[in-house]
C-alpha cells in the first residue's frame, strides 16, 4: 500500500518534471540558442582566429601561430615599435579620466536633482538622459562642429597659444576626452541619483548629533551610502568608454587611435583578420577583468548593486 502510493507520487512528480523540462525548452531555448549561435559561436571563432596566420588578402589560414600576438606587442618585420602599447595606454587613460570626470560632474548633479521638489525630479532626470536618446554618431558629430577650426572655441585656443593658428581643437586627445564625457555622463548620473535618492538621512542626523561636521560628516555618513551607485556608474562608464569606437574614430582620427578603431582598421582599410582578432581578444580580456574587479568590490560592499550586471 505504502509502496504503491510512493510510485504514483513518483510518477506524478515525473510527469511534472517532464512538463517542467518541456516548458523550459519552449521558453528559454529559442532565445538562448539564438545568442549561442549568433554571438557565442562567432566570438569563439574570433578567439580561434587570433591563433591563425594571415593570408594575402587578410583571410586567415593554417598553420597555427602566435604571430598576431607578437604584432599586438609591437613586433613587426620593421622591428619593435611602441605604437600599440601607446594605443592601449590611451584607451586605459581615456576610460579612467572619463570615469573620474563624469564622477566629478555627476556627483553634485545627483544631489542637485534630489534637492529639488519631488515633481521636478523626474523631469530633471529626463533632461539628463534625453541627449543620449539621439544617435551616438550625431552626438559625436556635434563636437566636431563645436571644435572645428573656425569656431569661437578654437579661436580662443588659437589666441591663447594652445594650438597653432588655423587649426581646430580636433583631432586630439582632448576632443576624445570631451566626446567620451558627453556620451557617457548620463550613465554615471542615473545610478548615483538612485543611490542619493534612497539615502538614509537619519544616519547623517546621528553624525551631526555626535558633533561631526563638514568633511567628516560627509565622508563617514553620506559617501559610504553612495558608494554602490558610484561603483555601478564606474562600470557603466569606464568599460564601454574603453571599448568605444565612434568617438575616437571621429574625434581622434588615425593620429589618436584607441583600441576600438585600431581593431576596426584591421577589418576595413587594410584587412588583417588574425591581427584584428588578437586585438579584439586583448579588449575582451581587459573588459572582463575590469568587470570582474568592480563586481568583486561591489559585492564586498555587501549591497545588492551587483544586480546591475
Amino acid at each position: 500500500m505504502a509502496s504503491s502510493l510512493g510510485t504514483t507520487e513518483r510518477a506524478h512528480s515525473g510527469r511534472r518534471s517532464e512538463r517542467f523540462a518541456l516548458g523550459f525548452v519552449l521558453t528559454v531555448a529559442p532565445g538562448a540558442l539564438w545568442i549561442i549561435l549568433f554571438l557565442l559561436a562567432p566570438s569563439i571563432l574570433v578567439i580561434a582566429m587570433a591563433f591563425l596566420s594571415n593570408g594575402d588578402y587578410g583571410s586567415p589560414h593554417l598553420p597555427m601561430t602566435l604571430d598576431a600576438f607578437r604584432r599586438v606587442l609591437g613586433f613587426s618585420v620593421l622591428g619593435w615599435s611602441n605604437g600599440n602599447l601607446k594605443t592601449l595606454w590611451r584607451s586605459l587613460v581615456q576610460s579612467a579620466t572619463a570615469a573620474v570626470a563624469t564622477i566629478l560632474v555627476a556627483y553634485p548633479l545627483a544631489f542637485f536633482i534630489v534637492s529639488r521638489r519631488s515633481y521636478l525630479r523626474p523631469l530633471l532626470l529626463l533632461m539628463v538622459i534625453l541627449p543620449s536618446w539621439t544617435n551616438q554618431v550625431i552626438r559625436t558629430y556635434a563636437w566636431m562642429e563645436l571644435l572645428a577650426p573656425d569656431t569661437s572655441l578654437s579661436h580662443l585656443a588659437q589666441e591663447s597659444g594652445l594650438i597653432a593658428p588655423h587649426m581646430g581643437l580636433f583631432p586630439s586627445d582632448f576632443a576624445i576626452f570631451l566626446g567620451l564625457i558627453y556620451n557617457y555622463l548620463p550613465y554615471m548620473v542615473l545610478p548615483l541619483y538612485a543611490a542619493v535618492e534612497k539615502l538614509d538621512w537619519t544616519i547623517v542626523e546621528v553624525g551631526r548629533d555626535l558633533y561631526a561636521s563638514g568633511y567628516r560628516l560627509f565622508w563617514h555618513t553620506v559617501f559610504p551610502q553612495t558608494l554602490p551607485g558610484l561603483l555601478a556608474g564606474i562600470i557603466l562608464v569606464a568599460i564601454p568608454a574603453f571599448g568605444d569606437f565612434v568617438v575616437p574614430q571621429l574625434l581622434g582620427g588615425n593620429k589618436f587611435l584607441m583600441l576600438g578603431n585600431l581593431i576596426a582598421n584591421q577589418f576595413t582599410s587594410t584587412p588583417d583578420w588574425p591581427y584584428g582578432a588578437a586585438l579584439a581578444l586583448v579588449m575582451l580580456c581587459f573588459t572582463f577583468a575590469g568587470l570582474f574587479v568592480f563586481r568583486r568590490v561591489a559585492r564586498r560592499l555587501g549591497r545588492g548593486e551587483g544586480q546591475i550586471l
Binding site: 566570438s43 571563432l45 582566429m49 576600438g260 577589418f267 583578420w273 579584439a280 573588459t287 572582463f288
Partner: peptide, 15 residues
C-alpha cells in the same frame, strides 16, 4: 550587453 560593440560587430562580420 557586456560584449564591447566593436568585438560584437567584427564577430558577426567574420561569422
Amino acid at each position: 550587453i557586456i560584449m564591447p560593440s566593436i568585438v560584437f560587430g567584427i564577430s558577426e562580420m567574420i561569422f
